[in-house]
Design a protein around this nucleic acid. Structure first.
Lengths: 196, 196
DNA sequence: CATTTTCACTAATAATCATTAGTTTTGAGA
DNA sequence: TCTCAAAACTAATGATTATTAGTGAAAATG
């Protein structure tokens, strides 16, 4: 009779979430089976239900944990005295770093949120929209202060967010450059462009 | 006994692919059922097998149709006499336009290619990698000619591709701006940056 | 009009799924 | 060592899945 192995620095639930995130990333939420998830921890599927409420619950917890992290960071940025350019750079840096440290969870949150049950999905989207609106305001402030070019703010935000959200950290990239290089190049590119 | 309605300008298979793309986008490939797909065309699931080989075949055809379009456009760009900046702008414009005209198929190709069967998946990834390498060469050429800043080419390409691939055309955006505005703002942003 | 092909149907199959019920084992604290 | 809760197990359920087989109607072709 196998047991879930718990390290001292993380709870049993957290271990399950980590395994779930990895599996959901690899196979997608729908295609990933509870049996397979249990297998990665050396137990039978029904045993998992001693620890979780449902498969859907795992997705919820992953998505909202990531969303909360982004929202919390946004609060920090908004209450700071940074100028708009620094704020945007800060946000880009946070996204890149978060993606590299919590790859599976961020990836799942990005790609599988559509599989959230109805009510949670609405809440998730509302949180996302609020985040976007905060960014749009920062960009608008930059334009008003003549720091930013006169781009359409909503599209500029769309560009930045799709750039950082869509980032794919594949294996071949990991050996090609460091996270710091990725961070700085992304900021450089999105702030200054690629043209000289 | 219902029948698939065929317009004169598209074959029966194409109609199935269009419906499949829309359903796969909305529910994801795994969660989308053949029964549900058949239902969108007013027939029973087994009847669909008079026209298709398998569910997986539909995904293959969608993914490779999109991939071929991008590859064909890349060939055009490579054999043109445009300078690197114009080439990149051209590629960005093509991505945005393609996404807006063939939204469902492009979306499915972007999000569901992981569900391709093994051998097709390898082929798809090879095609993607070749595409990326072509772009990296264009960026390198721009750097060599002192047109582009000295960014890491692979990351610059990663930024551009993740920006255009990750674009989400949600309903609220569609009424907010035109495709032309989206195209030009994306090009402006990725080439010149957001800073003045 | 006769024949053949196309294409829809119903019925069935075998697999897989998430989850529940009920039972047994394990391991920690008294 | 005894007790009890935590957590593992097996077995089962009912739903859903993609797909095949076999049949009949409709449409196209001669």
């Amino acid at each position: 009779m196998a047991k879930i192995i718990v390290q001292k620095d993380s709870s049993k639930k957290e271990i399950i979430l980590i395994h779930a995130a990895e599996l959901f990333r690899k196979k997608g939420f729908t295609a990933a089976s509870v049996r397979e998830l249990a297998e990665t921890m050396g137990i039978e599927a029904p045993s998992l239900y001693n620890h979780i409420g449902s498969k859907a619950e795992l997705l919820q917890e992953i998505c909202f944990e990531v969303a909360s992290d982004y929202t919390a960071h946004m609060e920090e940025v908004l209450s700071s005295t940074l100028n708009p350019a620094e704020k945007i750079a800060n946000i880009i840096r946070f996204h890149v770093r978060k993606l590299s440290t919590d790859f599976d969870k961020v990836f799942v949150s990005e790609h599988e949120w559509k599989r959230l049950p109805q009510n949670y999905l609405e809440q998730f989207l509302a949180q996302r929209k609020a985040y976007e609106n905060n960014m749009i305001e920062i960009v608008q402030e930059g334009i008003d202060k003549k720091i930013f070019s006169n781009l359409l703010p909503s599209i500029a935000v769309l560009a930045i967010l799709s750039a950082v959200r869509g980032l794919e950290l594949r294996q071949r990239h990991k050996n090609e450059f460091t996270i710091e290089e990725l961070e700085e190049t992304m900021i450089q590119h999105l702030l200054h462009g690629i043209l000289k």
